[in-house]
């Protein structure tokens, strides 16, 4: 190949690369060295399940071998439904709680209160599949350093922390 041709091809390649190039390296939001917990967690009915620094526990009449499954669902407004007017999802995810071989009495979900939640009204909501709306459930703030926001629901299904 002649030098002039090589030079033109080289410049052409650089132009193509420059046009297609982007300045970001696509990656998931949080995949670091400490492995985050699985998006789908199964555990016995009597266990307290870790969800990051928060927890989920279920009170149930368990027959032998009863178990629960906690699934994290990202982008809940698209995948489940929009929050009520004036409310926003405070976490990036909702939790889907399901039970196998057991009858659930209540589900207890706790997450740490982040500083940006302090000035907001924070209430856990349950996704009511019958009328397709997010319904508030009893929620309290307990402890300190930081306080934990804990909600108590009574049925299987989707739960999310909403604030306004």
């Amino acid at each position: 190949m002649k030098k002039s041709t090589r030079l033109i091809v080289a410049i052409f390649l650089v132009v193509i690369l420059s046009v297609t190039a982007i300045g970001v390296w696509a990656a998931p939001a949080r995949v670091g060295t400490v492995p985050v917990l699985s998006e789908n967690i199964s555990a016995g009915l009597s266990e307290v399940v870790n969800i990051g620094t928060g927890t989920v526990s279920v009170q149930a009449d368990a027959s032998s071998g009863g178990s629960m499954n906690i699934e994290k669902i990202a982008d809940p407004s698209t995948k489940i439904g929009l929050p009520p007017e004036g409310w926003v999802f405070l976490l990036d995810q909702a939790l889907k709680v399901t039970i196998s071989n057991g009858l659930m009495n209540s589900v207890h979900i706790c997450v740490p209160q982040a500083p940006d939640m302090v000035t907001k009204t924070t209430v856990f909501h349950y996704w009511n599949p019958e009328n397709s709306t997010w319904t508030p459930i009893p929620t309290e703030v307990t402890g300190e350093n930081p306080p934990m926001i804990c909600g108590t629901g009574s049925a299987e299904g989707h739960y999310a922390l909403l604030g306004k």
């Binding site: 090589r6 080289a10 420059s18 190039a21 300045g23 390296w25 696509a26």
Partner: peptide, 24 residues
Amino acid sequence: DRLRGLAGLFIDQFNAIGMAVGFF
């Protein structure tokens, strides 16, 4: 997206002139 990011990464390392010299 990463293929496009890779192109950006190389231009970031050597700028357009360095890339052209390498291809040449």
